[in-house]
Amino acid sequence: MKKRTPVARPRPSDLDDDDWYEPDWPDGSSHAHGLNFLNLPGWVPLDRVRSIAAGDRWHAIRVPYDDGRCALRALQSYDVRIGPVIANELAGHVTFLIELHLLTVWNVHGTRLLRPGTMVEIPPPTTTHGKDVRWLVLPEKDGGTHPRDLKRALTGAPPATVRLPQPARTTRRRAPRSAGPRS
């Protein structure tokens, strides 16, 4: 059995809420969890759950837990880009993080666009299981869910790229006209 060499980590008392530290490995990866920290945005905490204000880096749309899970499944079936999604089953909600420049108006019944400054709990990237705050979809440095796609997923409308089947047209064949009157 290989002996692991301990890695010096900052103690929680050494960290302020705004302090961030680099991953342990020079290539930025976490071999223990199979994650590549280089693809994560800088606002994702690496050590513990932190509260970050909505409206600074992204908009946050909060949805009831069951509706959020259904919307996520719908988004996955639409084959569209999906941005960060955080679930908290104990609190009963799913939060979709939407890029700032994409959202202008939000009015979907039963959901809530969190006001700028509302604190959102952001878990570390290794937290993907359990009933408390966790990632359903990890963030990446670029891209995210388009509000149009999320709205369609929440309202049950098909995505813009899917065409509904049209009813088959029935054409009547006319009887051939005769050249003259019948006798």
Rank of each mutant, 00 (worst) to 15 (best):
P6R: 07
E121G: 01
W43R: 06
N107E: 12
H101D: 12
M1Y: 03
N36H: 10
W25C: 04
T111Q: 00
A153E: 10
N107D: 15
I82Q: 03
P23T: 11
D27V: 00
N36R: 11
F37C: 02
P125R: 00
W106N: 13
P124E: 09
T171Q: 11
G144I: 03
V105R: 12
V44D: 08
L114P: 06
H109I: 09
P147W: 05
G83D: 02
L114M: 14
T104Y: 04
A71T: 08
S30Q: 06
H59L: 07
A71G: 03
L136A: 09
I82Y: 13
L136F: 03
S51I: 05
V80G: 10
V80R: 12
L138D: 13
T104M: 02
V7R: 11
H109S: 10
W58K: 00
V120W: 05
S13C: 15
S51D: 10
L150A: 03
W135F: 08
S13P: 00
V94L: 12
R134F: 10
T128C: 01
G28Y: 06
V80I: 13
R173N: 02
V133D: 03
I98T: 07
G130V: 04
T155Y: 07
A157G: 08
V49W: 06
L72E: 08
T145W: 07
D47C: 06
N107A: 14
L97K: 01
C70Y: 03
L154Y: 05
L164G: 07
P147G: 01
A168N: 01
R148N: 05
I122K: 03
L97T: 01
R182P: 05
H129Q: 11
W20E: 09
L113H: 12
S51F: 13
W135Q: 02
R9G: 02
L114E: 15
P6Y: 08
T111P: 04
R69L: 15
P6S: 11
Y21W: 15
M119V: 03
G55P: 11
P139V: 05
D27I: 00
V7A: 11
R148Y: 00
P41R: 00
N107R: 08
P26E: 13
G42M: 02
T5Y: 04
L46Y: 10
G144T: 03
I82G: 04
L72Y: 08
R115C: 04
H93W: 11
Q76S: 09
D18S: 11
G156S: 07
V120Y: 09
P167R: 14
P139I: 04
A160N: 05
E140R: 03
S178W: 12
R163C: 01
T145R: 00
D27M: 04
P84T: 01
